[in-house]
Nucleic acid binder design. Structure first.
Lengths: 138, 138
DNA sequence: CATTAAATGCACTACAGTTGCATTCATAAT
DNA sequence: ATTATGAATGCAACTGTAGTGCATTTAATG
């Protein structure tokens, strides 16, 4: 049994062929991927299957959904120990306006914010937009 | 000439009847509004007109677009002195997961974030999700 | 009043997201 | 090994937001 299969089983997700492929695809990419990206990478696969796979992965804490301001939901694998289901891994995301890629900056947590009286924070999303390290070198 | 008309002219936007109505609508609402909200408020109006009005308002710095994580673009009037066109008014937004409303917390600016080497920040978007002051009282 | 550009109205297209249902597949029980 | 069961997948739609092209109307100007 491969590492990926073990990871999926640990998260109570049956390691089907399609799921393993999607996991592998996301692990190789270092950037957040949209449903459409996966669709293009696996043209033979059904969009619905990919969609539901991402949903399952998200529910089980295998990936986290990222809203990078493009109005297209992106997903990235959770780091080991990432408890994003519990909204306790509030790392920030960076969206490059040049290459349009979105990355997790897992080492950079969202600072604590004081809210006005009566407001109760449960989750936070911080996206920095600008030029990524690759694009800024050219 | 009313205050709204003056405001629009100051921003080089012709104060047509429809635009004044939309401005008034947004001024009365204290929360960010989606295109659909405006559509429902003015059923006789064309969606395209409303859409383009919002785009025009945004270009001219009358409103700013808010991405609150719902994947539906919302808009809110800019405060006097808000220079969001220049990405220099990085206040945060709060999205209530109970009543689904989004508000600007204009007094709360996004703190400065140190990025990894090579990353250049140009804009930032911080949305806190939770329970708003109205909902937390019930 | 005529000219001209801006604003609006209408009719589309594109695409992300989502759902219902039939079918296939894998697993466990007999 | 066979069957029963539920999960996973495939197929075919629908929904809603965003956006565009073009004709028409409206408003400002000379």
């Amino acid at each position: 049994m491969t590492d990926i299969e073990k990871t999926l089983e640990n998260k109570s997700v049956r390691p089907t062929a399609m799921r393993i492929l999607i996991y592998k695809y996301m692990a190789e990419k270092e950037i957040a991927v949209a449903l459409t990206d996966i669709e293009n990478a696996f043209e033979k696969a059904e969009r619905t299957t990919l969609y539901r796979t991402l949903k399952t992965f998200e529910e089980k804490g295998i990936v986290h959904q990222i809203d990078d301001g493009t109005n297209i939901s992106k997903f990235a694998l959770c780091e080991p120990g990432c408890n994003c289901e519990l909204d306790q891994d509030l790392h920030l995301h960076f969206h490059c306006s040049n290459c349009d890629k979105t990355v997790c900056l897992t080492e950079h947590k969202i600072p604590h914010i004081n809210l006005p009286t009566g407001y109760i924070a449960e989750d936070a999303n911080l996206v920095i937009k600008g030029i990524c390290d690759t694009c800024s070198q050219h």
